[in-house]
Nucleic acid binder design. Sequence first.
DNA 1: CTGAAAGCGCTTACAG
DNA 2: CTGAAAGCGCTTACAG
Lengths: 342, 342
Amino acid sequence: MTKRVSLKDIAQKVGVSTALVSYVLNNKKQDRIGKEVAQRIRNTAKELNYRTNLIARSLKTNKTFTIGLIVADISNPYFSSLARIIEDEADKYNYTVVFGSSDEDALKSGKLIDVFLNRHVDGLIIAPAEDTIGQILSLQQQDIPFVLIDRYFPECKTNHVALDDFKAAYKGVKHLADQGFSRIGMITYNNGLFNLLERKRGWLAALKDSGIAFKKNWLREIGPGPVKQAVEKALQELLSMPQPVDALLFASNTIALHALKHINAMGIKVPQELAVLSFDETEAFDLFYAPLTYIRQPLQEMGQAATRILLESIGRNNKITQVNLEGELVIRQSTSRNPGKR
Amino acid sequence: MTKRVSLKDIAQKVGVSTALVSYVLNNKKQDRIGKEVAQRIRNTAKELNYRTNLIARSLKTNKTFTIGLIVADISNPYFSSLARIIEDEADKYNYTVVFGSSDEDALKSGKLIDVFLNRHVDGLIIAPAEDTIGQILSLQQQDIPFVLIDRYFPECKTNHVALDDFKAAYKGVKHLADQGFSRIGMITYNNGLFNLLERKRGWLAALKDSGIAFKKNWLREIGPGPVKQAVEKALQELLSMPQPVDALLFASNTIALHALKHINAMGIKVPQELAVLSFDETEAFDLFYAPLTYIRQPLQEMGQAATRILLESIGRNNKITQVNLEGELVIRQSTSRNPGKR
DNA sequence: CTGAAAGCGCTTACAG
DNA sequence: CTGAAAGCGCTTACAG
């Protein structure tokens, strides 16, 4: 790599100090610097194709204009959509984003946080994995700006941006009940992620308020390991009970995807034999023969809010902002009592 | 933020020079440093919760252990899957990745490259947008390590990892012809991206080799602007011709997605009325009522190869590696002449 | 109006 | 075996 040109090179060529060059190129003390010198400096900077070394600047200013984004998996459409929105919003303020996938694993999460801190990111946006409350508290204690996204720890006062998961699930399940479905099951993960717990709570509350007596075996919580098999098994069980469920809530797009594939394979008729409703949005839902009713998360708002709150927080603002956005119930064919076409 | 502890702090506490601390913590000159001092240094480092400032190290070593990834859009499943693979592979070598989306726009691409270079990334993995050959040549000239991914410029000798798009398209279209389809159209973008040109070339060659006389209006190339409308229009036209196509090749997952939605909406029977075949893989394809035949790209290999080639290239290796991987034709229902079930 | 100088936190060639 | 010193490329308080 050819030697990069530095402030010093420009300074020497123009015959001034590096300080002056720095001032000019950063538009500081504009009023107090001779127009003529300033112009000469600018010209030779361009001529030499100067680009400031952001590493050096960071060392001095203690700011990297970088934010670290930790999600469960960047290849999950939910997170990659969020990543794109955060990228765009961050870009408006000249921030770059580095990312990492935790796979919902506390160890990986810890490593990522470490790496990002060593790299001196100015702040973090984190979808915290299970059992990472310690890591989060530690960030807080170190006064590192961060905002949690998608889930958070209710017992812990931190910035967060998430869905009102309780309400969203409630709304969805109420809709199912209103449609006349009376044995409404749920497939979720058995981890302790707050958003999932809230979804479960919402499901239960809606059942109760709809006068439906909750049956314990309507709930399937899948553990760690291959999701596909677990979902298929759950589905089998839910449908082969003496009194099978007539409607199902899927707690995430991944669960829904595997379930729908299996439903396709088994030739189950949606919504006639089984109504289905999912959290999250993905293009895939549109290709299912019975377009899916789902709970849409306002990703744009979430991503933008998270980024802005983080940047405010980086700006030495020490207030705590907690945002819970409302999910939109998008009603389509998969939960209809009288499916028209097809 | 509380003051972070530096090498100096450790040095003072232990009563040695920062140099010695640096050596110990980096496991250098191990044989020549007293076990006892080394241990004391290590202990106080842990005690003080020391973490090395990677920014400072980078300034000195001129290495950031960061790679810049420029894709068209991180929220596209093709690119986010690739991103995840690259992340994991890079992590093995202690690299972190910063990403940016170019939206296939040369201007944005240029800006991203600039930002990443100012941040002194050690190298770049780029899915180059149209008309960015100048940017690529400039990187080459500056001796900046990079590898192109997904597409490249055949007239330009650079590292690249991509599909053998010609062969893949050929294989797919040949399969359609072998199935007995005889009016095989294609929907693609009208930009000059090499991978798309190759796919078109493969389509044409397969038609020719199958003894099918190519009709000009079997080809629809959609321009810039909203993809959805353009795809719908193309589809309408292809199906409303006096002699409509009986099979279609979609040049990308995005085109396929919109086309399939429209096919769903219009109630067109696949494959009876229209056989369809797409490039790329996405979960969505599994939910379509007639599981899609598609050309699978070996993403794992691509992402890993790209990362490794880049890292070798960063390691002052100046050989050029060009990889074209073979796509796998995954044959399913959407191109079957005698669809069994459903 | 302009610039010399210190310093951010590391690494490493060099000297002892 | 150990350490003083220079330097990476910037920024900025300070002095003139």
